[in-house]
Amino acid sequence: MEVVMAVVVGILYATALYMMLRRSIIKLVIGLVLLSNAANLLLFTAGGLTSGAPALIPEGMSALPPGAVADPLTQALILTAIVISFGVLAFAVVLIHRAYEVVQQDDMDEMKDTDR
């Protein structure tokens, strides 16, 4: 399972970078979305995959049940990261919308006035 996830994460990173290197700002934002998803999946995979064992201790038990138990921390971390990237990307969408209105261009190459 880890191998599959690793490949998926790699593909996501590659796609994200490819999209970010395009000239269109829409594709840039799509690239950013993919990038944050790739990072979340990496966090998920690196934190250790367990299947069929929820991160819950049955009622009445004071210690961990025997066998594998999912790590609740990675799930909490990813939930937080998803919330954050949701907020940030919502902002990015507003930003490109405004930028498009002001610049009237979907081309990054036309946006180099501040680099001179």
């Binding site: 840039l28 990038l35 990072a39 966090l43 990675t74 930003l95 002001v102 610049v103 501040t114």
Partner: peptide
Amino acid sequence: MEGAIKYVTLNLFSSALFLSAIGLLY
């Protein structure tokens, strides 16, 4: 707007790297 797009993109990229590094470290 032009400045912000560069600022936002590179900082989000860096955040994604930060998060990936956190994942590996964890």
